[in-house]
Write a protein that binds this DNA or RNA. Structure first.
Lengths: 223, 223
DNA sequence: CGTTGGCTTGAATGAGGTCAACGGCGGTGG
DNA sequence: CCACCGCCGTTGACCTCATTCAAGCCAACG
C-alpha cells in the first residue's frame, strides 16, 4: 500500500466520510494507474469489471453513434468516477474513456467493490447520490437536445458555466469548441457561427484561451 | 399492514431477494396509493421525499422544456420505480409523472428508505443496478437524438420492441404515436410520415390496435 | 350525436448540416 | 531555430431534413 494509492482514495467524495481504519480497507483493494494524454482508459464493447475514480487529470467520455458520429457524454475531473454501469450489470462498456491530459486513475474491481458496499453501506448512498444526479443531467441533456434550438442550448451552456472574475462575468470553456459542438449535439461550424452571432449582437466577447466574456446574460437567456 | 401493501412490496425486483422477516420491515414503511387515469403522481418543482414503486398500471414520465415542448422520458410498468433523484439529492422533481391508466403505487419515504438501505445493503445493489441501466438508456437516448436521423431512430425503436408472434415479427406500440414522437424527439406528423414511407417501401405493415408487422427488419436497420 | 383527441396528408419554411477552402497555432523533427 | 504538418476554428454557399401551419378524417366517449 503506497502513498499514491492512499492519496487516490482519500481524495474521493464517495469515501471521504469513512474513518481511517475503513479507508485502509478501501485502499487495500484500490489500484492506481496512470495514463498519458490521449490514452484510452476503456473502449466500447470491452467488458468492464472496475470502477474508475479520477485522481488527477481529466477524462473525456464519449460515444460513437452507428453513423460514426461522436457524441461527447461528459467530462470527468478529479473525484469523479465512471464505469459503474458494467459494474452492476454485467455488460460491456457503451462508451469510450480517453485521458485528455496526463491522468491518474484509481481502480477498484467489481468483486472488491461489492464487498465494500455490503460492509460499508454508506458508500452506496454516496454512489447513488452521484448516480442520481448523473441520471438527471443525462435526461436533461436528452430533453434539451430534442426540444431546444442550438442557439438556446449554447446560451444555457454559457449561463451554466459562468463565473465571476474581478467584476466580469466570464466563461472558460472546459473543452475545445469541437468537443463543445459534440456535447451540444451539433457541429463545430454551427457553434462557431452562433458565437459570432452572439458577439455581433453584443451579448458576449470572445477572448483568447477559450475565454468568453459575458456582456448581457439576461438577453442571452431570452433566446 | 394490509394485503395490498404486501403485494405492492413483494412484487418488486429490488426487494424480492429479501427473506419474509426482512420484507415485513419493508412493508411496515411502505404506503400504497392509487391514481386514476390522467392523475399526476408528482410534478416538476415539487419537492420529493419518496421513492415510488409501480405496483399496477402504467406511468408516463415526461419533462417540459422551457419552450413548453413536452419530452417523454420513459414509461414505468409494474416493478419499475421513480423518484430516486430527489431522494438522494434534496432537490425538487424535474419531471412529471402521470398515471396512464388506473395505477397503484407503493411509496416509501426518504427517511425510511435510507434506514432500510443501511440495514439491508443488498437493496442498494439492486437500486444501483437499476440506476445504472437507466443512465445507460438515457445517455443512449441523448446520443441517439443528436446523431441519428428521425428515420434511423424510429427504425431502431421498432427493432428494439420487436416480438415474435405466431411466426410473425410484430411490434405493439406501448404508447400513442404522439407520445412516441415525443419520446423520439420529433413530431407526430413526422412519425406518421415515416411510418407511411416504411410501409410504401414494404418494410412494415401498419395494423389496427397499435400493431406493426415487420416485414423486412434487415433493410429497416440499414436506414 | 356532437365533441375531443389522435392520426394523416399537404405545402411552405427554415434551422442547421454538409462540403469546401483557408488562416492560425502548436507540436515535431530535421 | 525554423519548416512542416495536422488539427482546430472560421466563413461562405448550398441543400436537405424536419418542423410548422393548416385542414380533414376517424374512433372513442360522454
Amino acid at each position: 500500500m503506497n502513498s499514491t494509492q492512499h492519496k487516490c482514495v482519500t481524495l474521493v467524495p464517495i469515501f471521504n466520510h469513512l474513518n481511517p481504519e475503513q479507508l485502509d480497507e478501501v485502499m487495500a483493494v484500490a489500484h492506481a494507474t496512470t495514463y498519458e494524454k490521449g490514452e484510452m482508459i476503456y473502449r466500447a464493447d470491452e467488458s468492464s469489471d472496475s470502477l474508475y475514480i479520477v485522481s488527477q487529470g481529466k477524462i473525456r467520455i464519449y460515444r460513437l453513434a452507428e453513423s460514426g458520429k461522436e457524441q461527447l457524454v461528459r467530462l470527468l475531473n478529479p473525484g469523479d468516477f465512471t464505469g459503474e454501469m458494467a459494474l452492476f450489470n454485467e455488460t460491456t462498456h457503451e462508451s469510450y474513456a480517453e485521458a485528455m491530459v496526463a491522468t491518474k486513475v484509481c481502480q477498484i474491481r467489481r468483486q472488491d467493490l461489492q464487498t465494500l458496499l455490503v460492509k460499508f453501506p454508506t458508500i452506496s448512498l454516496k454512489i447513488m447520490q452521484e448516480m442520481s444526479s448523473r441520471i438527471e443531467a443525462s435526461e436533461k441533456q436528452a430533453t434539451w437536445v430534442s426540444t431546444e434550438s442550438v442557439e438556446a442550448r449554447l446560451a444555457s451552456f454559457i449561463a451554466e458555466n459562468i463565473e465571476e472574475k474581478n467584476g466580469q462575468q466570464t466563461v472558460t470553456l472546459p473543452m475545445t469548441k469541437k468537443d463543445l459542438a459534440s456535447y451540444l449535439g451539433t457541429t463545430p461550424e454551427t457553434i462557431s457561427r452562433k458565437f459570432s452571432e452572439f458577439e455581433e449582437k453584443g451579448l458576449i466577447k470572445q477572448k483568447p484561451k477559450k475565454v468568453i466574456e459575458v456582456l448581457n446574460l439576461d438577453e442571452l437567456l431570452l433566446l
